[in-house]
Design a protein around this nucleic acid. Structure first.
Lengths: 224, 224
DNA sequence: TCTAGATAGATTGAATACAAAGTACAAGAA
DNA sequence: TTCTTGTACTTTGTATTCAATCTATCTAGA
């Protein structure tokens, strides 16, 4: 009798999605740098697949804003200008304001606990030298807020906006002198949710975002 | 002597982009209805190309939120639930608020003239029975505002959010009884820009959006 | 009659093949 | 030297092919 019904077939993913995730990760972690060419054959060989799934993945990256294609010349990892950064930040500011507003109304007690735990996890992470871990812990903190906003469309759009600048953020987070401030801001955010003070939250989130601008701007200047 | 140096070779577009635009239009105009299957072979025959560019176009539509693919089953035109509509509207409300805020600061005199002309063009369009023309005139009006916001990233994101609901909007606009109201709202918006009154503008834009909800909601209910 | 299983046809997934365009480099002319 | 121009090589664009999976229909058995 086929008793082990735990077999979930959903571990099947089309190669295009595997490739997409792989490339996406590589871009976000900076392994593929802004401006770097994405050559189909090269990637196909490297990943052990044919060009077909590579091409489909590139189309997806393109739509996400992570790659740019010039017809008959090929794709490359998208670069950001300072203006682009400014623009994205303007948008994120508005979207984050919406997110905290929604989250403030809708956050469950369980989610609030989760948020406090995410904060602690981040504090722990800063004690290691693992930059990836630190970045992920910070993202996880904000993910709790986005999830609490209970608006999947918003989540998708914020994530796409986030991605476009987050890949410039690794360097920023490498500087341990900023950890104390980030930790403090996270605490303040928790406090804001505790008091359900929307205006206060919008403000602190705005500050939290702004603090990243200069560091990222520096990096974008260097890329030229 | 080759005096006519006006030859611009940029009329070349990869088939994937042609297909993408074609399908996108078809979805937005309602020729391809929510839930309708996008069969590769079928579309390939219809458009006279092979499956390859079709597949790439579908990947792009997917990332835009206009199509949904189930692995090994194929793609279909994305459906919206009422919750999805609610979510997108929440986001658009925030983004439109940002757009008018930016536009209010940055709109040039020429753009203000353009806006007034777009308003007139819409009023003219409502006198015809050409629904497509009316919808496009309305979009053009709002496009002027988005352009005035001088934030291309914002424009891109708003457009993507717009698309997701606009395809449900054709039916709404078919009802001539709403024209008068829309025209009035456009006038009010112009007035707001004239006075550079951001708070007023945010309000009227919010109203303008909300008015569409119920009609679209009705349509979404029907689709089930 | 209804269910289960088998089979054929349709459809997607991925690889390969071939055509068209772009790139780089070397040889020759100004 | 510097600028063409030609040629070989790369790379992308698109079509085609083959394999895997899904769907619908039909038949057999309860």
């Amino acid at each position: 009798m086929t008793e082990n019904l735990t077999l979930q077939m959903d571990d099947y993913l089309p190669l295009r999605d595997v490739v997409f995730n792989t490339l996406r990760e590589a871009i976000l972690k900076g392994e593929l740098k802004p401006g770097e060419r994405l050559m189909e054959m090269h990637l196909a060989n490297k990943l052990g697949v044919s060009r077909t799934p590579i091409r489909e993945a590139i189309r997806m990256l393109e739509q996400e804003g992570l790659a740019v294609t010039i017809p008959r010349k090929g794709a490359q990892v998208a670069k950001m200008t300072e203006k682009d950064l400014q623009d994205v930040l303007e948008v994120r500011d508005a979207l984050d304001a919406l997110a905290v507003t929604c989250a403030c109304e809708r956050m469950t007690d369980a989610q609030f606990v989760e948020l406090k735990e995410a904060m602690k996890a981040f504090e722990q992470a800063t004690k290691t030298d693992d930059v990836r871990k630190i970045v992920e812990a910070d993202e996880a903190f904000h993910d709790v807020i986005y999830a609490a906003a209970a608006n999947p469309k918003l989540e998708t759009i914020i994530n796409s906006a986030r991605e476009q600048m987050y890949r410039y953020r690794y360097e920023y987070v490498k500087n341990p002198s900023v950890y104390a401030q980030i930790i403090q801001e996270h605490k303040t955010i928790i406090d804001g949710f505790d008091r359900r003070d929307v205006e206060f939250l919008k403000n602190i989130i705005h500050t939290h975002l702004s603090n990243q601008i200069n560091a990222v701007r520096e990096l974008i200047r260097e890329q030229k």
